[in-house]
């Protein structure tokens, strides 16, 4: 039901945005490709052309693949935790009749907290010696943990932090989906004597599958590029326990002045994001949009 505009009018509307993106996104993107073909060995002023050597070096390095491993764990972990818990809480919230407004107002709060503050707060709470969490655990007789400072526990800890921040997002997306759902199948199921669990399993889930897919995709994109919390809490440590691609790219570029590494990693991440989003977004816009 779109109208036809006068010839050329559309440019007035669309062009400013496109020109802006051309300057701040497309041009840097290609300039970045050009820079990534150079070496900074002689300093940032004396770049030397090395062709695809940076790509070969990075993509065959142990460090890069370790970063890939950590990125996958981090992404899968946070997406699973946020969508899983989000779904559970949304279903529960949907079945509550009173005080919903209050729960909604409280549950959404983490989305407003700046990730940097989130990271620092949890760092404080996770401190193995002076943190509140170990203290509470020991008060009730549970084992304590090294949390983000332990090689084996650091990844789980940052996943918990990232998840705390982002659970409200899938939660409310799914909740919105639940609210839009037709009531008839449930009424019929109740009459047939289906249990609550059966209703969720056989009616709710299939109905909100597209919404669930949307939440998962968007969380994937968010987790894949997550930086703030990791940078603030562990900077990739201890050792390289939480060293993800984006942290590597950042540290190499801005701490070690070897920006070719950062560029190569960045380009690789861009390609992955593009592939994933083209597949998923196309699928989803068809499902959700209709």
């Amino acid at each position: 039901m779109k109208m036809k505009a006068e010839k050329g009018t559309v440019f007035i509307f669309v062009l400013p945005t496109l020109i802006f993106l051309l300057l701040i996104f497309v041009y840097p993107l290609f300039f970045g490709v050009y820079l990534s073909l150079h070496s900074t060995r002689e300093g940032l002023r004396l770049l030397s052309f090395v062709g695809l050597r940076n790509y070969a070096t990075v993509l065959t390095s142990e460090l890069f693949w370790w970063g890939v491993r950590n990125t996958v764990i981090y992404t899968v972990g946070t997406v699973g935790l946020t969508v899983g818990l989000g779904l559970a809480i949304a279903v529960l919230l949907n079945r509550i009749k009173s005080a919903v407004w209050l729960y909604r107002a409280l549950l959404i709060l983490p989305l407003g907290v700046s990730p940097v503050v989130t990271g620092m707060t949890w760092q404080m709470m996770f401190d193995p010696l002076s943190g509140i969490i170990n203290h509470l655990l020991s008060l009730v007789g549970l084992p304590t943990s090294l949390w983000h400072t332990g090689f084996r526990t650091a990844m789980a800890s940052v996943i918990i932090i990232e998840s705390w921040q982002w659970i409200p997002f899938p939660l409310f997306v799914i909740y919105a989906g639940l609210q839009m759902m037709p009531q008839e199948p449930f009424e019929a199921a109740t009459i047939d004597g289906a249990t609550a669990f059966q209703q969720i399993r056989y009616i709710t889930l299939p109905l909100i599958a597209p919404i669930l897919g949307l939440a998962t995709t968007l969380r994937f994109i968010g987790a894949f590029r997550s930086f703030d919390i990791l940078y603030v809490v562990t900077k990739g440590g201890p050792g390289r326990a939480t060293d993800t691609l984006i942290l590597q790219a950042f540290m190499e570029s801005f701490s070690y002045y070897r920006f070719e590494y950062g560029l190569v990693v960045g380009k690789t991440m861009l390609v992955v994001t593009l592939i994933v989003s083209i597949i998923l977004v196309n699928k989803l816009t068809r499902q959700v949009g209709s």
Binding site: G150, F151, R152, G236, G237, P238, G239, R240, M251, S255, Y256, R258
Partner: peptide
């Protein structure tokens, strides 16, 4: 600086066993 940062991480791996 790059040497120092990698050293930091290696020491942590040793400390953590």
């Amino acid at each position: 600086i790059s040497l120092l940062d990698t050293l930091t991480r290696a020491l942590q791996e040793a400390i953590e066993g």
